[in-house]
Amino acid sequence: MSIPEQLLTQLISATEEVFERMVFVPVTVGTVDGHVSAGPHRHVVATVAFAGHRNGFVSFHSSIDTANEIAGAMLGIPHDSVNGEMPDAMGELANMIAGSLRTRMAAFEPAWTITCPSVTIGSDFSTRYPSEVSEARVPFTMNGRTVEVEIILSKR
């Protein structure tokens, strides 16, 4: 099973809308990759899980520098002034992307429940998944930097 085209289309639209309205920086979508790289990276991963008609999660990936830039844009402060605010900002960003995706998909199927976000920050870590999932990673370019939005869908 692969990620349904409709789900990917809505995920891309949700991400573009969140960046346009809440980060105030446009993003340009790249080519969707069905294979999720396993790291290790020094970066930020903000994740929101969902359950119900579909089960899985949405994760936002970026470098720490880019995450600080995004947090600064959201808060209306210079990126080099961002300190402890970045994790909350990344969690809220993932929450809005997953929430917007949930709302968009609710027009076609029963609404899911989404969880509160979790944010992982660090280096030399990687994420592995069981074989019972489908995965896709969508790259976006923002001010010359690349961020990625990942969706994992359980086959169960």
Partner: peptide, 24 residues
């Protein structure tokens, strides 16, 4: 971000005057 129809109905029943969906 809770913007499904059922969410809005629940919020209106609780007493909200208006509803704004994130991202706004």
């Amino acid at each position: 971000t809770n913007a499904a129809q059922d969410d809005i109905v629940q919020a209106l029943h609780a007493g909200v005057n208006n509803y704004v969906v994130k991202p706004f």
